[in-house]
Amino acid sequence: MSRISVRGFAVASATAVTAVGSVVGVASGSTGQSHDAEATAAGTTLLADLPVGQQAQVQTASLTQQASVQAIAADAGAKKDAEEAARKAAAETAVAKKERAEKAQKAAEEAKKRAEEEAAASRAAQREAASASAPAVGAVQGSYSIGQIQSLARGMVPSGQWQCFSNIVNHESSWNYRAVNPSSGAYGLFQALPGSKMSSVGSDWQTNPVTQIKWGLNYMNGRYGSPCGAWSFWQANHWY
């Protein structure tokens, strides 16, 4: 091995030379004075003068050091790759979860919209059917069914008061606008006594349920404040 090649070898493996016993010190008789890598490399020009066994030790130490460095670098690279893969997997999982949540929310919104549309269509159909079967308010015909009378009343009574209003009519006449009490002579949907008092609303009070509904609603509002006020009184006294 030439001195030039030994010098180049020593520069590449200065750390290894130092690690195995400071060959520079062995060759020059130094007792361990520290130098930087370049100084150490410069001092190894006498490496060729070392015994063959020591040269082999230096070479073995250098190769071992290089392998160790490479192994550390490989471990660091593998760890970095694993961390990057984990980050990517986590990001992909989060994106997938978000997409599923968005799809579920969209499906729920569409279902709600369809339900609202169907409900609106059903209400419209019911209104059309009621309108077709019920006579116009104010129109007089020969006879009225209970369903027709109730449809007329629904168009005149506030929705929040409807149930109370309906309860009273159910108890008084069962929605028979021609009902007559054989004992007192009370007449109509609300069993007005006398029935002729409903003429304050219209002279057709005997034959027109609209006239009776107007009178009954005015009576409940005027005396009890509302149909529900009248119903509360009725429940306590069984008359109103």
Rank of each mutant, 00 (worst) to 15 (best):
A139W: 04
G155W: 06
Y144H: 01
L46C: 07
E110T: 05
T60F: 07
P194G: 08
Y177T: 09
A186R: 00
A67F: 06
L193Y: 14
M220R: 03
S68Q: 14
G155L: 08
R178W: 07
V157F: 03
G142D: 10
E102Q: 14
F9M: 06
I72S: 14
K197Q: 15
A132Y: 01
S28N: 12
H171V: 14
G195K: 06
G155P: 00
V180P: 08
Q33H: 09
Q126W: 03
K197H: 14
A230F: 01
T44E: 14
V180T: 09
R123G: 07
E109T: 07
A101D: 12
A111V: 08
G8D: 10
S62K: 00
A120L: 13
V157S: 01
K97G: 09
V26W: 10
W215E: 08
L46G: 09
N181L: 00
V11N: 02
G138K: 07
K112N: 08
S200W: 13
A186I: 05
R87Y: 09
Q105D: 13
L217F: 02
D36A: 04
R127A: 14
L217A: 01
A96F: 03
R154H: 09
F190A: 10
V58Q: 07
K79M: 09
Q55P: 00
S68A: 15
A76T: 10
I4Q: 13
A136K: 09
